[in-house]
Design a protein around this nucleic acid. Sequence first.
DNA 1: TAATGTGAAGACATTCACAGCG
DNA 2: CGCTGTGAATGTCTTCACATTA
Lengths: 240, 240
Amino acid sequence: MAKESESPTSGDYFDHSASKDSGEKSPLQVPKPAAQRISLYLRYLEAQAAQGKSTISSKELGNALGLTAAQVRKDLGHFGQFGHPGVGYILTDLIPRIRKIIGTDRVWRVALVGMGNLGSALSRYKGFASRGFQITALFDQDPEVVGKEFAQGTVHSMDELEEIVQRENIELGILAVPIEAAQEVAERMSRAGIHGILNFAPKVLPELPAVRSVSVDLTIQLEQLALSISMDPPEGNKES
Amino acid sequence: MAKESESPTSGDYFDHSASKDSGEKSPLQVPKPAAQRISLYLRYLEAQAAQGKSTISSKELGNALGLTAAQVRKDLGHFGQFGHPGVGYILTDLIPRIRKIIGTDRVWRVALVGMGNLGSALSRYKGFASRGFQITALFDQDPEVVGKEFAQGTVHSMDELEEIVQRENIELGILAVPIEAAQEVAERMSRAGIHGILNFAPKVLPELPAVRSVSVDLTIQLEQLALSISMDPPEGNKES
DNA sequence: TAATGTGAAGACATTCACAGCG
DNA sequence: CGCTGTGAATGTCTTCACATTA
């Protein structure tokens, strides 16, 4: 009864093996920061491979990404044994193995909801498709926008969300709607069977059943810059 | 001689008081995670104030943001003493104090470089101006784009970067150029006197003199979703 | 020899739990 | 009495340092 908060902040690990009733398969326990870095590793490795490199050491990889060599080895170590002592990591071996871990060895189908400013720009963004994220359906609430044509097809009405998500086997959603609509749309995505939401609305989404979410909050990022400059101004200010 | 890495990963705190020669003013030492959350607090507090609330407890604030009450108190405690035992935090008092800490009690002037897809969308994004970030100048490398008109004015050629940044007292830059150009443009921004870069190119920027940078990497965010789903699939899969 | 993988140590962040205050 | 502020305890992540392997 001493606990003062009801909301347990839940899993810090990509692992919910704490569930009491079975816990049978304990499927790889990775610290969150390591999981976030693995995508960076993959991208750098791919770039190196594209340039004809065939092996890389933890030190090289670390230097390129601003990390220590030990950190790189520890991070990779959470996912398995990939390296060759005296040699380093072999790109043609490591890259597919990381892709498989992340899940980008296959295509993920994505719904984009909200075709305003940001939504339209995202629909045109090349980086998604080139890494296996296929924007499969577009949605908007505004009758003015529904029916418009984009590269990915016609903009659908929100009414069709559930049906299309299911029919098209869509697993991920990009939420690019105004803040007022964000939570409701997120809940609908969840009910429609979407398992992951990339949220651009400047709002913390509440926990939704069976859904992961990641928020990209542009203003907050600028505020981080402002804060870090405010707290520790770079030297060389004019007007001392 | 035992150290195996040259790159020391540098400051985790918004504080470089480790500089040897004086260390005179030790200007508030805040853990990075706390610094990242302070913007979230501010936004929620403002929303509550706008709804007519006048005080809030750490518990309430924590619940709204998915944090424990203790976490909220500890975080705020890093910046000062703001609360009133038995009462909570008084919004009209706390809000301006946090604004001042972050630096959003004033206007920050921002250059936006790269007026492609994403850059144009960002130039239209309302959220920046409403929180004190004023996009003051637009730049692009493409002669086709230079001269175009946007709400913030004409798109300038890259040649004018240094001059305009200085004349207009621009402190922050948004980097929305293709990956190949990112590093060079970042270096130019740094030389022009910009102190903070919000980077949208999918690349880790190297440390630049007197510049903070924050990266927003859209594909990596989607990969985080994919990874978290891959590692721990939500229950309720059809076709078990 | 050049590099990995990994326990152990250390640094850091979060949570607990309670004294103290209005 | 309710709620903050904060040391102490716990938990997590990073770094160190070295045995190990090709």
